[in-house]
Amino acid sequence: MTRIGNSDLDVFPLALGGNVFGWTADRDASFEILDAFVAGGGNFIDTADSYSSWVPGNHGGESEEIIGQWLASRKPSNVVIATKVSQHPDFQGLSANNVRSAAEASLKRLGVDHIDLYYAHFDDPSVLLGETVNAFANLVSDGLVRHVGVSNYSAARIHEWLGFAHRASAALPVAIQPHYNLVHRDPESAIVPLAQEYDISLVPYYALASGFLTGKYRSADTAGDSPRAQGAARYATPQGLRIIDTLEEIGKDHKASIATTALAWLRERPAVVAPIASASRSAQVHDLLASAIVELTADEVHRLDEVSQPDPV
């Protein structure tokens, strides 16, 4: 287990992404995935109130509802639930009233009395940041939320959030959720140094680049493939394919899959506590869990650093 920032949340160093629940995984498949994750030692589940509102016929909250049904059915111990606010069709933005109403709706769907880690999903420049910070702080003081996080915020805005929180003696963010993986290393310029300076943990999403870093998509041709294939295939550039080849070579030495090796690299990055990865079938969970025990050598990390180095242009 590993600790999120300076909080009391001890988590398995891989978070299970709930974005597929109610989308590419129905209720039964989702239960099987969650069962396999917990049976393998996992305890950190990430979702959002908006998942999966983009699916025809869905309205948002489907993922939380499935997780809530699973929690009620299985009654697991020591499971850490993270969810987010600002993108649900009925609760868009980060005004104080919206943050409170969305949190209460998430609690009802999850069937829990508190949210372990509650993220501001996307920055909302239409609302004064101080209002949002205070809204989250009030959720903590009222016992609805244990800890606060931010997702998709710039380093500058996180600095502002920290300033407001310090001045108000409010709950400080313990986690940042950035888009971060071997083919998208943008957070290393500003987010990673900020996280290190303030002892805030990174919980990267798109850790497998929409599935590209599983090695499944080696072509831009995704006709007839899964709903996520188009997002993954855009990384099938010459550099992207070199990254896949390197992951495959390194993985063989560890008897590990491409996906496992990619997650193991990300887990070793500064300030990263637990990459987020999702599975549409329970059979995929093993490779996700395995990333927590694969230890890459310094030379292997260097090879992956070099092959994935962003183009300076």
Score class of each variant (00 low, 15 high):
Leu129Lys: 02
Gly17Glu: 01
Arg3Lys: 15
Asp35Met: 13
Thr237Lys: 10
Gly211Glu: 01
Leu304Ser: 00
Ser282Gln: 01
Glu64Tyr: 01
Lys252Gln: 08
Leu194Gln: 10
Ala137Gln: 12
Ser169Met: 09
Leu296Asn: 09
Ser86Leu: 13
Gln196Phe: 03
Gly40Val: 12
Ala292Lys: 00
Gly251Cys: 04
Arg109Trp: 08
Asn138Val: 08
Ala168Glu: 15
Gly17Trp: 07
Ile191Gly: 14
Arg146Lys: 15
Val133Phe: 08
Asp142Gly: 10
Ala29Asn: 00
Leu247Ala: 09
Ser73Lys: 06
Gln92Pro: 06
Ala279Asn: 09
Pro173Lys: 12
Ala277Arg: 06
Val272Tyr: 13
Ala274Asn: 03
Leu144Gly: 00
Glu64Met: 08
Gln92Asp: 05
Ala82Asp: 01
Asp113Ala: 08
Gly143Gln: 02
Asn98Thr: 15
Ala232Asn: 00
Arg74Asp: 04
Ala82Glu: 01
Ser73Arg: 03
Val313Arg: 12
Gly130Asp: 06
His286Asp: 12
Val79Pro: 11
Ser7Met: 13
Pro275Thr: 02
Gln177Cys: 12
Val11Thr: 07
Gly130Cys: 11
Ser73Glu: 01
Ser126Val: 12
Asp245Glu: 07
Val203Thr: 12
Lys255Glu: 00
Gln239Ala: 14
Asp123Pro: 12
Gly224Met: 03
Arg228Pro: 03
Asp35His: 09
Ser189Lys: 02
Leu144Phe: 12
Ala25Ser: 09
Val79Asn: 03
Ala165Cys: 10
Pro76Trp: 03
Pro270Lys: 03
